[in-house]
Design a binder for these strands. Structure first.
Length: 559
RNA sequence: CGGGGAGUGGCGCAGUCUGGUAGCGCACUCGGCUGGGGGCCGAGCGGUCGCAGGUUCAAAUCCUGUCUCCCCGACCA
């Protein structure tokens, strides 16, 4: 099928100097991809074969749940985007045609599918409906990074479900979730389904599929029976030893000490005994003070969700004018509403006194200040998960997500149906995305070793990497040529290294490229009438008798 | 958008401070030797030093502007 002497698979001894992520380095070195610009990548033949294997698996699993494939344009009129309010998104590429009509390059296809469904679907009899495509997406990313992990142009499998009510949506959602699990399993990934932020789209539920790996951009909080994106994770904080309670707060001089570390060191208490006050300006509410335990970090997404409104950090002049001197502010006697994080509890706490160079100790929430309690901190490794397990935090790549959209798109785009009673209702939608390139990268990140890529059998660009150590015209080469023909005839996908190169180069390239089974035909083996097969994953070696090598190789592949 | 770094042959880099013949390793081409882990010898090809302007007798090198790429952060339907 493919002879390496003729193939366009440019391997590199060294990775480009600017590559950081393992998958980025190996994909470039193995000749899978090449860069054209920031976040713009070309798939070379070997890389494209892998990507298409992922797509084939996705396609099969989508069709198995009754999801129908279609294809929508990437270049679209701006109008539906203006209707849904997404025309304002910074990441959306916008352009005009020669007549001056505004167009966009789609970043997803909710507007497009909904546009079509709105025109064709009229009756409850047309529902439920599930559609998908495997199509290019364009996003003007502020910072593309890590090879194929975060790019401005990428392929996405995006599916959309259309139901008459929430119950139907839940069924479609579960069907997709089932397919997602099968897809990721078949791709050989370690993955977690985690609760995720529904974001500004305000849907009724969302889950992300995370593949843990060092290059991951997201963090997932994991415990037995619990998995959530750190963006939304919630857990019980680790306990702290607090100073003794007091009858009333007492001032203590802390000249020039403004950070948690300085104050806790000076007063000889744990950082967790302090209350950190973060002044924020909340949309529609004005200046508020958010309180966190001294050793905790604010989770902006949780705060935004809990408030149901956007917010920003207060400016120093706003703090000085309305609360007190920056670095010494606290809730006791403050003139602004106080939001206390759940993890702050007990008595004997320490906080700023709203006076220069002064803190208060012996502070007790409720007694000394009123508050609204919200869970707004970022969970940490060692916290206790809702199920009672201990939280661990791992970096992960988001390889897919599923989302209950509700009527977010059907209402502005007029996608409605008539029920049995002739009453019009908006269609209830879901959307479901998978990034094949991220699956490829995650697979490499999770499985590669120091010699190169280690593909699972389902993703390997070729099943067999056949290496002839002899050069053209030599006797040993004829045996390799013959085996190549036999493997092909038997239906195997074979990459045949027939180059006139040294053995070191050929063997190293085979390991770099990572196909499941390498078969070496060389003088040494042929002397005993065998070829040498080795499995890339695990390294098991087998000597196959020459005359039966093709058949035995195929049976090794089935394992 | 903030901070940092880099653009010199296909890849990796030196040369820039202190202006004066563009260099090294790998790759590539040709010839030969070698042949189980990127081997050796010899001969070659290939670069207006990101771009534009300026200073100078003279600019990869100094000055100004600009573009691109990478990393950290912010951001990420």
């Amino acid at each position: 099928m493919t002879r390496l002497s003729q193939a366009f698979i440019p391997t590199l001894k060294d990775a480009p100097a600017d590559a950081e992520a393992i998958s980025h380095k190996l994909m470039v070195r193995a000749g899978l991809i090449r860069q054209m610009g920031a976040g713009l990548w070309t798939y070379l033949p070997a890389g494209w074969r892998v990507e298409r294997k992922v797509e084939a698996i996705i396609r099969e699993e989508m069709e198995a749940i009754g999801c129908q494939e279609m294809l929508m344009p990437v270049l679209q009129p701006a109008e539906p985007w203006q209707k849904t309010g997404r025309y304002e998104i910074d990441e959306l590429f916008k352009l005009d045609d020669r007549k001056g009509s505004p167009l966009v390059l789609a970043m997803t296809h909710e507007e497009a599918v909904t546009y079509h469904v709105a025109r064709e679907v009229r009756s409850y009899r047309d529902l439920p409906l599930m559609l998908f495509q495997i199509q290019t997406k364009e996003r003007d990313e502020p910072r593309p990074r890590a090879g194929v992990l975060r790019t401005r142009e990428f392929t996405m499998k995006d599916a959309y479900s259309f139901d008459r009510d929430e119950e139907g949506l839940s069924r479609s959602y579960e069907a997709q979730a089932g397919a997602y699990g099968r897809i990721l399993d078949r791709c050989g990934l370690r993955w977690y389904k985690v609760e995720s932020d529904v974001g500004m789209m305000g849907g009724s539920g969302a889950d992300e599929y995370m593949a843990p790996c060092p290059a991951g951009e997201n963090e997932v909080a994991l415990a037995p029976g619990y998995a959530a994106n750190v963006e939304v994770a919630s857990a019980t904080a680790q306990p702290v030893e607090l100073p003794a309670a007091m009858d009333a707060p007492e001032k203590v001089a802390t000249p020039g000490l403004t950070t948690v570390e300085e104050v806790s060191a000076a007063l000889k208490v744990a950082p967790a005994a302090l209350i950190k006050a973060l002044p924020v300006v909340v949309e529609g509410r004005g200046l508020n003070m958010v309180l966190l335990r001294g050793d905790h970090r604010l989770n902006e997404i949780k705060l935004r969700n809990a408030l149901g409104a956007d917010f920003r950090q207060a400016k120093p002049e706003e703090i000085d004018a309305e609360i007190g001197p920056t670095g010494f502010i606290g809730p006791v006697g403050a003139k602004v509403p106080v939001i206390k994080d759940t993890a702050i509890a007990g008595a004997g706490l320490i906080c700023g006194a709203n006076q220069p160079d002064t803190h208060l100790r012996g502070v007790q929430p409720g007694r000394d200040f009123a508050f609204e309690e919200l869970d707004v901190r970022t969970v940490e490794a060692g916290d206790t998960a809702p199920g009672g397990g201990t939280i661990e935090i791992e970096p992960a790549i988001e390889v897919g997500n599923i989302f209950k959209l509700g009527t977010r798109y059907s209402v502005p785009l007029g996608a409605t149906f008539l029920d049995e009673g002739g009453v019009e209702h908006p269609i209830v939608m879901g959307s479901y995305g998978i990034g094949p390139a991220r699956i490829v990268a995650a697979s490499i990140e999770q499985r590669a070793d120091e010699r190169g890529i280690v593909w699972p059998a389902s993703l390997a660009p070729w099943q067999v990497h056949l290496v002839s150590l002899a050069k053209g015209g030599e006797r040993e080469r004829e045996a390799a040529d013959k085996l190549y023909g036999e493997l092909e005839a038997a239906g195997a996908e074979v990459l045949y290294d027939d180059r006139d190169a040294g053995p070191g180069e050929k063997l190293t390239d085979a390991e770099l490229l990572g196909c499941s089974l390498r078969i070496v035909v060389g003088r040494r083996g042929l002397a005993e009438g065998v070829v040498e097969a080795s499995e890339r994953d695990g390294g098991a070696e087998h000597k196959l008798p020459l005359e039966d090598a093709a058949a035995q190789a195929l049976s090794l592949l089935d394992v």
